Amino acid sequence: MNERLAPVLRTADANAAVAWYARLGFQKQWEHRFAPELPLYVSIARGALEIHLSEHTGDARPGTLLYLYVDDLDAAAAACGVGEVEQMDWGREFEVTDPDGNRLRVGAVQR
């Protein structure tokens, strides 16, 4: 079975969002637009992780929260310009907000 889940995040500018998520190692996989004047829909991925970014107003609401587990939390924090990672009861993490108000909480993979 090769199932996967791709959450959709609302964005006003998909290309700007692609650049923002690149700091965390996400790369554009593909994009789709029905016509040049219509909204853009983009898939970004980091390994097996996939997120869809949509300029379509009905696809998702700004302000969504995603939790991303990474192997090197300190490197991810540095790439996002985060100076201090918080120590929580469940582990270390930090939170950043993309240009569209979507929140990304990033935590260390528990070994």
Rank of each mutant, 00 (worst) to 15 (best):
V8E: 11
T57G: 03
L66V: 08
E50Y: 08
A19V: 11
F26T: 05
A78I: 03
F34T: 11
G83M: 03
I51V: 10
A75K: 13
R4C: 12
V18P: 02
Q27A: 15
D13C: 04
C80P: 01
G63Y: 00
L49A: 15
M1W: 09
L24G: 14
A108M: 06
E86V: 11
Q29V: 15
Y69V: 09
E31G: 12
V18C: 06
H56R: 14
A16E: 11
D71Q: 15
P39R: 00
R10S: 01
G91R: 09
V96A: 04
W20Y: 11
Q87L: 12
V82S: 07
C80K: 00
E55V: 04
V70E: 03
G101H: 08
L9P: 02
D59K: 00
V85F: 08
F26E: 03
P62D: 02
H32N: 12
T57R: 11
L24Q: 04
L66T: 04
R4D: 12
I44P: 03
W30R: 15
D59C: 05
D72F: 08
A6L: 11
A22N: 03
T57F: 04
A14R: 03
G83S: 13
E3I: 12
T57Y: 01
A48P: 08
A16R: 14
Y21D: 07
L73I: 05
F34Q: 12
D89Q: 13
L5E: 11
G91N: 08
R61N: 12
A16C: 07
A108I: 06
Q87H: 12
A77K: 02
Y21F: 13
